Amino acid sequence: MLASPYHFADQGDVPNNPELPLILYREALAEAPDRATAFERLFVSHGWGGTWRNGIYPFHHYHSTAHEVLGIAAGSATVQLGGDKGERIELKAGDAVLIPAGVGHKQLSSSPDLLVIGAYPVGQKWDLIRADDVVDGAAVRARIAAVPMPESDPILGSTGPLASLWAA
């Protein structure tokens, strides 16, 4: 498995995260008879909960009150990460993305069978802010800065890259 960090600058309407990089995990989860359930179990085993099954919204959005992990259980998608000036990334079944609070994400296209499993650190409640929402930028950035660090990496637990890449 390859884990790669991505840093994104503040874009005004999408604040991104000034301290924490997004982490892309290629081939985070090998082929499994039920990869969706396998992702859910993996996330929960590492202290991430509130799991859901769906896709990725087709508009730029971010969460100011929680970090989020997305596991691609089936299909593929092209996503825009970090806002309009961010990175276009191809995701395929087995990949995962750890998105720090404040980092924008948007689905640009997907295969018809796309299935995404999402989760948040236990105790964190997510909000949803669209890039075109009118918000108090200072308050949003203060909430992002106050989101606590997860206790462990959602993919690899205590041995994952979160510990080194998100070190305080």
Rank of each mutant, 00 (worst) to 15 (best):
A3E: 14
Y6P: 02
F8A: 07
D10S: 06
V14R: 03
N16Q: 13
L20A: 08
L20G: 07
L22M: 13
I23Q: 01
A28N: 15
A28C: 09
L29N: 01
E31G: 12
A32D: 15
A36Q: 02
T37P: 04
A38V: 10
F39D: 01
L42V: 14
L42R: 05
F43H: 08
G50H: 05
W52R: 05
W52V: 00
R53L: 06
G55L: 12
F59L: 08
H61F: 06
H61M: 02
T65K: 04
E68Q: 05
V69Y: 03
G71Y: 00
A73K: 00
A73I: 05
A77I: 02
T78D: 15
Q80F: 03
Q80A: 15
Q80G: 10
K85A: 15
G86Y: 01
E87M: 13
R88S: 14
E90L: 14
G94Y: 03
A96N: 12
V97E: 02
P100T: 13
V103M: 11
D113S: 13
I117S: 00
I117H: 00
A119V: 04
Q124A: 10
Q124W: 00
Q124R: 08
V134R: 13
V135H: 06
A139S: 15
R141S: 06
A142C: 07
R143E: 15
R143W: 12
I144A: 09
A145W: 13
A145V: 13
V147M: 09
P150M: 10
P154T: 06
I155D: 01
G157C: 04
